[in-house]
Simulated assay, not measured.
Amino acid sequence: MLSIFKNKATEVVNVNDLEELLGEINLIDIREPYEVEQGTLKGAKNIPMRELLKNVEKYLEKDKDYYILCQSGMRSSRVCSGLSKSGYRVINVSGGMGSYVGSKIQ
């Protein structure tokens, strides 16, 4: 069962609840490229946090949902908080790659 809940102004989903959605969602890994080299979830697009925040309009549309992933869930939580206040539909992937126990890594 997919557990998405509201945490303040941002929706949250646990990284281990995403497997059934991979390939069907807009998943953005905001870690640095050297971190992503260790693996990321299948279908994730790597846009480092600073690049995303510097050029939000280049990467995101306000009428689409985006799942934001990092290593532990801390960076993604901060990014989601700011983006949601700016009108973007973002879901924080809690736990991040450090908590992922599945097999859908690319």
Rank of each mutant, 00 (worst) to 15 (best):
I4G: 08
K6R: 15
K6P: 02
K6H: 12
K6N: 13
A9W: 01
N14K: 12
V15C: 05
N16C: 12
D17P: 02
L18C: 08
L18V: 07
E19W: 02
L21N: 06
I25K: 06
N26E: 11
L27T: 00
L27P: 01
L27C: 00
I28V: 15
D29C: 08
I30Y: 01
I30K: 08
P33C: 09
P33R: 08
Y34D: 05
V36R: 07
E37D: 09
L41N: 07
L41K: 10
G43T: 03
A44L: 03
K45T: 13
N46K: 05
N46S: 13
M49G: 00
R50D: 10
E51R: 10
L52W: 02
L52G: 12
L52S: 11
L53Q: 07
K54T: 14
N55I: 02
N55C: 01
E57Y: 01
K58H: 05
K58P: 03
Y59G: 06
L60G: 08
E61W: 07
E61D: 13
K62L: 12
Y66N: 13
Y66F: 15
L69W: 05
C70T: 06
S72E: 12
S72C: 03
S72F: 05
G73H: 10
G73E: 10
M74K: 14
R75E: 02
S76E: 09
S77R: 15
R78L: 14
V79S: 09
S81Q: 14
S81A: 14
G82Q: 12
L83T: 08
S84E: 15
S86T: 06
G87A: 10
V90L: 11
V90H: 09
I91M: 07
I91Y: 15
I91N: 10
V93L: 07
S94V: 06
G95T: 04
G96W: 04
G98A: 12
S99N: 09
S103P: 01
Q106A: 09
